[in-house]
Amino acid sequence: MSLLAFYTTSLKKHPRITNSLTTGFLFGTGDVLAQFISPGDDYDYKRTLRAAFYGSVVFAFIGDKWYKILSKIKFPGQPLANPRLNMIRNGITKTSIDQLGFAPLGIPLYYSIMTLLENKKFEEVQIKLKENWLPTLKVNWMIWPIFQIFNLSIIPVQHQLMAVNILSIFWNSYLSLRNAKKGEDLPVHSPPVPE
């Protein structure tokens, strides 16, 4: 049995568990890759576990629901005579909704949860969002729209999250590197000095 056949069978029998395990594994893989390409740092297995946890517990379920919602969206208006053009037009419509609706909310969700999982305070979440949200969103818009048009036009809905997760290995590496910026890149808040 091929890996894709095994995945498809597992997805049919146990969709939530399969999505959770594969998404967590791929988020963790992205973090491992990020740590290996980041010079001079020791490997932090807790960071990988946080990434895998986020992928398994948060993103797998949100992503699954989101792709099911997107699968029902069609371009408003009359269908075209050419079914392929309809697929592409619907894919562009879904991608627009995904990139203008989900991405601007999903990015701060990632940074917020990862910062809280690092046992940091809410003020640090705000700092991380202020520094990372817009730059990450801009990079997101350079990468994801072309892929999502293809994914949401051609890939069957049950495999769309997996397709996203495969590209996400590299995207998650980027997010992990950005999330783990060193202290010198962040504002330093010193405790007050007693007089």
Score class of each variant (00 low, 15 high):
T48C: 12
T48A: 12
K94W: 01
A60K: 04
L100A: 14
D41T: 14
L109E: 06
G24L: 07
A81K: 15
K72A: 11
G106P: 00
F59T: 03
I37F: 13
N90P: 12
L116E: 00
A52Q: 02
Y43W: 12
S96V: 14
A81G: 07
T95M: 05
G55T: 09
I113E: 02
F53C: 12
K72D: 04
N82V: 02
V58K: 09
G28L: 05
G40E: 12
L26V: 04
I69F: 15
T93E: 04
Y45S: 15
I92S: 05
P39E: 13
H14T: 14
P79N: 08
L33G: 00
P79D: 06
I97P: 05
I69K: 03
G24C: 06
T23C: 15
G55A: 08
I107Y: 05
P108M: 01
K13R: 15
P104L: 04
L70G: 04
K68P: 00
L26Y: 08
A60P: 01
I113N: 01
L21K: 02
T95Y: 07
G63Y: 10
L85M: 13
L33A: 11
Y110T: 02
G40C: 10
L49F: 15
H14S: 14
I37W: 12
W66M: 04
K68G: 11
G24V: 07
H14N: 15
L70Y: 06
P15E: 07
Y54H: 09
R16T: 14
Q78Y: 08
R50K: 13
L80R: 12
A81F: 01
P104D: 05
V32T: 04
I107P: 03
A52N: 03
D31Y: 06
S71L: 00
K46C: 06
S96W: 11
Q78V: 09
L109Y: 09
I97M: 12
L33N: 01
W66T: 05
T95F: 06
F102G: 03
Q99G: 03
F36N: 07
P76I: 08
N19T: 10
G30T: 07
L26N: 02
P15Q: 09
L85F: 11
T48I: 04
K72W: 00
P104R: 09
P76S: 08
F75S: 12
Y110Q: 02
I113L: 14
Y54I: 08
A52R: 01
R84D: 09
K65T: 12
G28E: 07
L33Q: 00
P108E: 03
S71W: 03
L21S: 10
M114Y: 01
F25R: 04
A51V: 03
A51C: 12
G40H: 08
T23K: 05
A60N: 02
I73M: 14
S112P: 04
D44F: 08
A34G: 13
Q35D: 11
F102M: 11
F25G: 14
N90E: 11
T22I: 14
R16A: 13
P104F: 01
N82P: 05
A81I: 05
L26T: 02
S96H: 09
T18C: 10
T115Q: 06
I73A: 11
P104M: 04
A34I: 03
I17M: 14
Y67I: 06
N86I: 02
A52Y: 06
D98G: 06
I88T: 07
M114Q: 11
I17G: 08
P15G: 07
F59M: 11
P108T: 03
S38N: 13
Q99M: 05
